[in-house]
């Protein structure tokens, strides 16, 4: 029940940070394109905070407008800025970008792809069948599905994905770049498997793994399917 007392509450969110150098630099555009292409489904309409620590521009409304257009092309929605100078902040406010504190970042080397490397949040639990056309994304955590995943459905997680049922759709683990993420499936009939941007389509899965319980892991930069629950054997990828 919403009351006056609880109408405005604190919230904690995991948001990606995009480091801006020169908003008009084509290399910036290319970098974003490349990053987005590596993690299908993850970047769709995602909110981002712009880190302006290494940015000399972004001091005018025109700069931000151009930047917003470019980000939108990559399906990213800027919601704020951090490490901004007073001038940058003034222009940012004029285009409805909020100020975020710079304290939450790790040494400013790589954006949140690394930050989500160890997802601390409790796994998300799904107990109803994931129907065709549905997309479930467990941001910053593992995903546990105790039901079948239909063809045409997508289950996505920054951490591991555990499916206690048949996987007939797509499973995308380590969506934020965590290469140690795995996919555990009770019955493999997947359309597509992906971990941290590397993927295997259904056709490429060896027939002996179909309908079987398997683990999928990224080993030496390749997606490997491990039959059963043995962690030590590494069979050839399908």
């Amino acid at each position: 029940m919403i009351t006056t007392a609880n109408r405005v509450q604190g919230g904690i969110f995991t948001i990606m940070v995009v480091r801006v150098t020169d908003p008009y630099d084509p290399a910036f555009d290319r970098d974003l394109a490349e990053q987005v292409a590596r993690s299908p489904g993850f970047f769709a309409d995602a909110p981002v905070v712009l880190d302006l620590k290494d940015c000399l521009g972004c001091t005018s409304v025109a700069d931000y407008t151009a930047l917003k257009q470019m980000l939108r092309r990559h399906r990213l929605i800027p919601v704020g800025v951090q490490n901004a100078s007073a001038l940058q902040l003034r222009a940012a406010h004029a285009v409805d970008l909020a100020a975020f504190s710079g304290a939450g970042q790790n040494g400013g080397r790589r954006p949140a792809a690394e930050r989500s490397a160890t997802p601390p949040a409790r796994p998300r639990l799904v107990t109803e069948p994931v129907r065709s056309g549905t997309q479930i994304y467990a941001r910053g955590s593992d995903l546990i599905v105790v039901a079948p995943v239909s063809p045409g459905a997508e289950v996505i997680a920054d951490g591991h994905i555990h499916i206690y049922g048949a996987l007939r759709g797509r499973a995308i683990a380590g969506a934020g770049g965590d290469q140690s993420a795995r996919i555990f499936v009770h019955r493999l009939e997947a359309e597509l498997l992906a971990i941290a941007g590397r993927y295997l389509v259904s056709e490429a899965i060896a027939p002996e793994y179909l309908h079987q319980p398997v683990q999928v892991a990224l080993i030496d930069e390749h997606l490997r399917i491990l039959p059963g629950w043995s962690a030590t054997r590494s069979a050839a990828a399908g």
């Binding site: 109803e128 129907r131 065709s132 056309g133 239909s150 459905a153």
Partner: peptide, 12 residues
């Protein structure tokens, strides 16, 4: 069957 699955998702 695939289309029915989609519509079941919408019923939910």
């Amino acid at each position: 069957v695939r289309d029915s699955d989609r519509i079941i998702g919408m019923l939910a």
